[in-house]
Simulated assay, not measured.
Amino acid sequence: MRVVVKFGGSSLRYDFYDAVQFVKMLEDENEVAVVVSALKGVTDKLELLYKTGDKKILGDILLDYINFAKKHGISIDAIKLLAEELSSALSLNFPNDKVKRDFLLSFGELFSASIFAQAIDGVLIEPWDIIVTDGNFGNAEVDITKTRNLFACVRDLMEDGKVPVIPGFIGGFRGFRTTLGRGGSDYTAVVAGICIKAKAVLIMSDVEGIYTADPKVVREAKPIPFVSYDEALIASKFGMRAIQWKAVKLASENEVPLLFGKTKGWWMGTLVSKESSGMPIIAYRLRDTHGIVGVVNAYPRVPYERISEGENWVAFKVPKDETEKAVREIHREIMEKYLPFTKVISVIGT
């Protein structure tokens, strides 16, 4: 069976050993491709490096990865050439600032993939050679038809028993590197899943799956075992952090199952497919002047302005500095109806 496993930045930084062992376990009986994000916090530093050109920030990024590699027994030779390339990039001439930004931001995933590939004795893939995008630098769209053909080299590696390690978030357009938007490693993982005809794409992070609300905001949030593509797409557009909305859309169009799990302990919690548990999902995003809270599968009666709604969702406008408070209030209001159901799930899963 072919599968794609994607690890987020928190998983790599804090649960690297579990991630490595998980891949080694899977490859015993499966053909596996891996997609990795930058270490948590690195992309923000690269963004700042692009804006300022501050070599102290550059040094912090390089030291972060050097220390990370040493901590896990990986030779720094794995990232030495990349470090030199990033250092020299600050003085290179680019056609425009957008091209330069995407080039610099690509290094977080490249460092991560180089280290991970060495840890599992895998093969590092240069994504701009196989993932073809449009020229929308910073938020590029993948040309799945052209990309599928170029993925032949990845399929060949897997058939030979090797594990390709693909840096997420990065594509290519006419010889330049592009980035796929924040959360773009999810997009890369789904693209890879389609192109290798994977049975499933595993999205591994620091939580067990998709919850009724962000568990970091709502302590009482409940895990949801089955979420439909449509529900996940709506929730992700409202700011659900579990997966990028472009990734869900592409998975839905190609009927690629998405399995969400926690890297530490290998706990799998949510399957995104055509099936649904019918449980509510509350997500939010911040605007310049206010917050927007979106609710899927429920229509709560709350004292906030209702600004839009659809067949199975509704959106509220809330004061920006009270957004998280509003999320907790809305969650408390609607979850009373679903509490018996979630208790049954807990008993079955015990």
Rank of each mutant, 00 (worst) to 15 (best):
L286S: 12
G269W: 07
I282A: 07
G269T: 07
L286K: 12
S277Q: 05
L271I: 15
S273P: 04
K274A: 12
V272H: 07
R285I: 00
H290E: 14
K274Y: 07
I282V: 15
G278H: 06
W266T: 05
R287H: 14
L286A: 11
W267D: 13
F260W: 12
W266D: 09
V256G: 10
G265W: 10
P257A: 14
S276D: 11
G265S: 09
G265T: 05
Y284H: 14
P257N: 10
V256K: 01
R285Y: 15
S277N: 09
I282W: 00
E275C: 04
W266V: 02
K262R: 15
S276C: 07
W266N: 15
S276A: 14
S276P: 07
I292T: 11
S277R: 05
K262S: 02
R285P: 00
G291D: 03
T289L: 01
G265P: 13
P257G: 11
S277H: 05
D288V: 01
I292N: 03
I282G: 01
M268L: 15
L259R: 03
Y284D: 11
R287V: 00
D288R: 13
W266H: 13
G269S: 08
L271K: 04
W267A: 03
Y284A: 09
T263C: 10
I292V: 15
S273H: 08
L259C: 13
I281E: 05
G261Y: 12
H290Y: 15
F260S: 14
G291T: 08
P280G: 12
V256Q: 02
K264P: 03
Y284G: 03
L259T: 08
T270L: 08
